[in-house]
Simulated assay, not measured.
Amino acid sequence: MRGNRIRAATKISLALALLGLVTPTVTAAAQPAQTIQTRTVVLPLSGTFDEPDAEPINITGSIRVTVITQTNPGGGGTARIVSNLRRTTGVGEETGDTYRFAGADVATRAYPPDPITPLEITPVFLKFWPPGPVLPPNPVRPVEIVVSVAGNGAITDISAEVADDAGPET
């Protein structure tokens, strides 16, 4: 009689253990999976950056922009925008001085589950004037980046242009 109870308890324990292994899998499968999408572009830059209290600077160069989106269950999500200036220089309109712009920036923005959302950022970079040290105002925001993201995380467009007036970060 005692042996039957032990066998019955063992079978019940195995059944409960198997149920415990199956239940989390069913729960996890019921939720929609998060998706991650990535897109990288190198965009040309050309234009005049007119910072406050300084001469206008004609900028040429390029910027590399990487966008990584991660969706939330139910739509929408988070976009991480990484931007790096590449060989970007400027010439002062009044003095003819040559400036170098350098740096990288990372911004994180949330986007809703709506059809398409434009995300706008102005990354922070440094401005150099050789041979001296970095001159104020620093940091500067000479570029505006616009990323279009769909509610499912699809990256539909990335653009960058020289900012009209984006002075030092406050």
Rank of each mutant, 00 (worst) to 15 (best):
R39H: 11
A8P: 05
I155L: 05
K11C: 09
E120N: 11
L119W: 09
A28W: 09
L14I: 13
V124E: 11
G132M: 07
I158Y: 03
A104R: 10
D53K: 09
R87E: 15
G76Y: 06
D97R: 13
A154C: 02
D157Y: 01
I63P: 00
V22D: 05
P133W: 10
A28N: 12
L45R: 03
T35Q: 15
G153H: 06
P112Y: 01
N72D: 14
V91N: 14
N84H: 15
P137D: 05
D53Q: 10
S13W: 05
D165S: 09
T25F: 07
Y99P: 10
L14G: 09
D165W: 03
A166M: 08
L135C: 03
V162W: 01
G151C: 03
V26F: 07
T40V: 07
Y99M: 06
A29P: 00
L45G: 00
V41G: 01
I121P: 08
G20E: 08
V146E: 10
P168T: 11
A102F: 11
G75C: 02
F128E: 08
I6E: 11
I36L: 10
P56Y: 01
P115I: 15
P32H: 12
L45D: 01
E93Q: 15
I158H: 02
P136E: 12
L85W: 07
F125H: 03
E94Q: 15
L21K: 08
S62E: 04
V26G: 03
E55A: 01
E55F: 01
P131I: 09
T89P: 12
S148A: 13
I116R: 15
V140E: 01
A107N: 15
E144T: 13
S83M: 11
D50W: 02
Q37T: 14
L16V: 14
Q37H: 12
T27D: 07
D50Y: 00
A154P: 01
I59G: 00
V149Q: 04
D105H: 08
P32I: 14
N152E: 10
I81T: 12
G74L: 03
L19C: 14
A9P: 02
V65S: 00
T122E: 12
L126F: 03
K127S: 06
M1T: 14
G132R: 08
V65C: 00
P24A: 01
R87Q: 15
P24F: 01
T98R: 13
Y99N: 10
K127V: 07
P115V: 15
Q70L: 11
T122R: 12
F101Q: 06
P131Q: 04
N152I: 06
N72H: 10
G77S: 07
P168Q: 10
R109F: 06
N84F: 13
T66F: 01
T60C: 00
N72M: 11
T108F: 11
G103T: 08
I145P: 09
R5N: 13
L126T: 09
D50G: 04
P118W: 00
T66R: 04
F128S: 05
T60W: 00
L85P: 14
G76R: 06
N58G: 00
Y99E: 11
P137R: 06
S83N: 10
I158V: 12
E161H: 03
N152R: 08
I36W: 07
D105Y: 03
I57W: 04
S148W: 07
D53S: 10
V140L: 02
S148Y: 11
Y111S: 03
W129Y: 03
N138T: 07
T48M: 00
V65Q: 00
I116M: 15
